[in-house]
Design a binder for these strands. Structure first.
Lengths: 360, 360
DNA sequence: TTGTATGCGTTATCAG
DNA sequence: CTGATAACGCATACAA
């Protein structure tokens, strides 16, 4: 399990000047080593610990005067709340979870980033776990995590709708990259991006286009295939679907043969990794990209522009998805009701060098 | 803050069969909603809660018979310890921290991965935080985190030695990618990899080689420059140092002009990002790689082989560094003394297409 | 508005 | 080997 620490959660500190000698405020009872508690503050401020607790957690439930006294004392002692002690009586942990299929997959990277940064800006700590691409470990990881966090974000979950709803019944849950009925979702609308991609391809003389599919259980892969089909129909292009073994660079390499056999002159892949592997293999076989075959990836991950030619891709605003999911979740944690339908974010085509005019 | 969840920390569960109807074991006093505690187990097992605690935490401090009874009861109730409640009296959190400069930097990715996986295998949860490349936020983040975790790993820290030692005085600390006196360190030994790189360059006819430096505060960048210097001397090559504005792809682009002006025909960069940006810019200017200029990166990050030609690079075993740092830290947490000197791991040259024979 | 008393789930100390 | 009981640090009903 991995946890991303937010940066707040303690009283502002102006580093009490190391003034003179022995005025070190005496710590608690036993071994000096431990950090100050609300009891120390209470003693120093001349109030009851419970008042300190109120002053530091709830705002405005204490007189402005004592509020200031307490804050000053806290600052002077360099006080920080003990998150564990706080979590015990309240049940709230100021923490939310995010489950991804693979921590090292750059696709999830931006999601993580987005979720952690908006979480952090609202004093929440992100707890991260990966499912190792397995639906089973995904549900166990979720279950386990749910007992430790205040809410949960599921990114491209592989488990089935019913299991997701079961989790959502326990604590607030938000899903990314998939539309689950009855559960708040943030899902990129692929139609715009795919539409742009297919029209661009058509304008460049392509007649037959192939879609390299992702994992069978991937809800998103299905949506993307649908998008490619309908856009192709609209643009009067033929569209064929080619299966991949796994959504990785290697998976892209393995699929090169099938692409060649398909007769397509342009291909859209489920994700950028597949596109990169495919392009490498094609080029290694002497196929010129984009002169002979145009390649369009999906997501615009880190490194998509490292290739030669740089990869044309349908950018999915992963960072925004993570960020909006976190916002949604945090709002729910603060009493707001989740939205009824799914929240859609736009995708857009990023034209780089791997797609272009078909040369006879 | 980000936290990577480990996968254990609960009693094995065999999913009590949904046998019949109303035999749901009654939960605690009030609202049914909460999870079972050791009190529930105690009641069900007919023993005292404290005995349950002993049976579940310490091994062998309870009779084999009651041990089994308790474990069975725990399993039946689907019991999981409450980490917060446990942390309170013990101070131990089964958690360790990792501070990196930038979560999205692929260099740290493998470190994170390595640390989290070996941590997880020993029932520890990784807490991750980033310093946003600032020494100041780095030390505050470390301080804050130190109060929440059992130990800390610092990856490529920017703060100065004294601050690191101060942290290490509080709780176990391990440093990666830097040698700090008096603190356990895991640092790649660059001499081997750089030696291989320079000899390979020399063998390919290069006479003058440039090093593109990283951030001024980077301890590692200094070591790498030293390595390049001494290896060049040994191979009778000239070596010049070129400064970069920032250790990113863009930083690499900006430095292209200086490289051309330097007269070097081969360049080794502080990291792969710089190498990739440099290569892109050079190629855009019509320079052929590696025919006219050879480029060697550092680290072998994700995407280093996406480029054309694929990047030759000195691989730094980042994953192993993270893993060994975690092992070290966890050992220290379990009473073992930290090693006296730094632990060194080897680097090695990965020859790909961006380096080769110099064509007149 | 503030103080008092109690509980959160677990471990640790002491008896028995 | 096991049971009672007091912390751990904080929050909260309730009383003042």
């Amino acid at each position: 399990m991995l946890l991303v620490a937010n940066s707040d959660y303690d009283v502002a500190v102006t580093e009490a000047t190391n003034s003179g000698a022995a005025t070190v405020p005496s710590r608690r009872g036993r071994g000096d080593k431990s950090s100050p508690t609300i009891y120390d503050i209470a003693k120093l401020a001349g109030v009851n610990p419970s008042t300190v607790s109120r002053a530091l957690s709830k705002p405005g439930r204490v007189s402005a005067k004592t509020q200031k006294i307490i804050e000053d004392a806290a600052e002077q002692l360099n006080y920080r709340v003990n998150p564990f002690a706080r979590a015990l009586p309240t049940g709230r942990t100021q923490t939310f979870g995010l489950i991804v299929a693979d921590i090292t997959n750059p696709t999830f990277f931006d999601i993580i980033r987005g979720a952690e940064s908006t979480g952090s800006s609202r004093d929440y700590t992100l707890v991260l776990a990966e499912s190792a691409e397995s639906a089973d470990t995904e549900v166990t990881a979720s279950r386990r995590m749910l007992s430790t966090v205040d809410g949960l974000i599921l990114a491209s979950p592989r488990m089935d709708d019913e299991q997701i709803r079961a989790l959502a019944a326990d604590k607030p849950v938000v899903v990314i990259n998939r539309d689950v009925d009855g559960v708040p979702c943030v899902v990129p609308d692929v139609t715009k991006g795919i539409g742009q991609a297919v029209r661009s391809l058509a304008a460049n003389g392509h007649k037959q286009i192939a879609y390299v599919a992702g994992p069978a259980q991937s809800w998103m892969s299905a949506r993307r295939w649908e998008g490619v089909q309908s856009a192709s129909e609209w643009s009067k292009l033929g569209a064929v679907r080619v299966e991949s073994s796994k959504p990785t660079v290697d998976g892209g390499r393995y699929v090169a043969r099938d692409i060649l056999d398909s007769g397509a002159t342009a291909v859209i892949t489920y994700n950028d990794l597949l596109a990169i592997g495919l392009m490498q293999e094609l080029q290694a076989a002497g196929v010129r990209v984009p002169d002979q075959i145009s390649i369009v990836g999906f997501d615009d991950i880190f490194g998509a522009d490292f290739t030669t030619p740089p990869l044309t891709t349908v950018r999915s605003p992963l960072g925004e998805c993570g960020s909006r999911a976190a916002t949604l979740l945090l709002d729910m944690l603060h009493g707001n009701e989740g939205p009824s339908g799914a929240i859609h974010v736009d995708t857009e085509l990023v034209v780089r060098g791997s797609s272009g005019r078909l040369l006879a």
